Simulated scan of single mutants.
Amino acid sequence: MEEQRKKENIEENQNLENKDIAEELESVNEARQHTKAGLNDDVEEAEADVEVEQEEKLQQELTEANNKYLRLYAEFDNYKRRTSKERVELLQTAGKEVIGDLLMVLDDFERARKSMENAQDIPSVKEGVELVYQKLKSILNRKGLKEMESVGQEFNADLHEAITRIPAPTPELVGKIIDEVEKGYFLNDKVLRYAKVVVGSESL
């Protein structure tokens, strides 16, 4: 009987201990669950913070790139306006300089005209006109104008404009320029005006 009671007491104590252990395990599991939930919340919050930071960084980079583009566009627009203005001014200045030099020739022509009204000495008048012509030619040469030598040269469509073709007086002049109707000119080594020429062809 005594042994039965001891056995029951032992079983009861064992059950109490098992119950306490089970309660402790449940508490530990609950604590673990809370910790896990808290960690998940922390991770989600950290991920959200990272996303916000990345979005802010990208927005900042986009703003900087946009500002840089606007600055470059404004600088290019200013450059375009400035170069356009400089080009117009250069053309106006170049024209002004040429006209200023030609005024001297115009003065010479006016003096020649007056002298021709009552001139008796024809050779001196011719000489005066020749001097004015040479002066004009010299001014234009200084500005880059150069006469095109055409007569006797091979016909070149890049330089010459054929007005007509006539039988060449000699076989050597076939395909060459026999006469020049209007002189051609270069300006700074570029064709300013094509020479209008007569080209020799084979006799029929």
Rank of each mutant, 00 (worst) to 15 (best):
residue 83 T to G: 01
residue 184 G to Q: 04
residue 159 L to M: 06
residue 65 A to G: 09
residue 126 K to T: 04
residue 67 N to Y: 12
residue 25 L to E: 12
residue 34 H to Q: 12
residue 121 D to V: 10
residue 196 K to F: 03
residue 157 A to T: 12
residue 167 P to S: 08
residue 186 F to C: 05
residue 24 E to H: 04
residue 69 Y to E: 14
residue 177 I to Y: 00
residue 87 R to V: 05
residue 103 L to H: 15
residue 169 P to M: 06
residue 197 V to T: 05
residue 136 L to I: 09
residue 148 M to F: 05
residue 79 Y to T: 10
residue 78 N to D: 12
residue 78 N to G: 09
residue 125 V to F: 05
residue 102 L to N: 09
residue 151 V to S: 06
residue 12 E to P: 00
residue 106 L to M: 11
residue 156 N to D: 15
residue 185 Y to E: 02
residue 81 R to W: 10
residue 89 E to G: 08
residue 138 S to P: 02
residue 119 A to S: 15
residue 118 N to T: 12
residue 40 N to Y: 05
residue 167 P to R: 10
residue 60 Q to S: 13
residue 115 S to H: 06
residue 147 E to L: 11
residue 129 V to D: 00
residue 108 D to Q: 15
residue 178 I to F: 01
residue 192 L to V: 04
residue 12 E to W: 13
residue 84 S to W: 02
residue 28 V to A: 07
residue 93 T to M: 09
residue 118 N to Y: 07
residue 151 V to W: 13
residue 202 E to D: 06
residue 43 V to A: 03
residue 182 E to W: 02
residue 191 V to E: 07
residue 113 R to P: 03
residue 69 Y to K: 10
residue 33 Q to N: 14
residue 8 E to T: 00
residue 13 N to Y: 06
residue 180 E to H: 03
residue 31 A to D: 10
residue 92 Q to E: 13
residue 130 E to D: 12
residue 164 T to Q: 10
residue 130 E to T: 05
residue 99 I to D: 13
residue 139 I to A: 01
residue 200 G to N: 02
residue 90 L to C: 08
residue 97 E to D: 10
residue 199 V to E: 07
residue 109 F to K: 08
residue 159 L to N: 02
residue 166 I to G: 01
residue 54 Q to E: 11
residue 138 S to M: 09
residue 55 E to M: 05
residue 34 H to A: 08
residue 74 A to S: 14
residue 36 K to F: 06
residue 6 K to A: 05
residue 200 G to Y: 03
residue 53 E to K: 00
residue 140 L to C: 12
residue 64 E to F: 05
residue 87 R to I: 06
residue 141 N to K: 15
residue 56 E to Y: 02
residue 50 V to F: 08
residue 143 K to C: 00
residue 67 N to Q: 14
residue 114 K to Q: 14
residue 171 P to A: 15
residue 18 N to W: 02
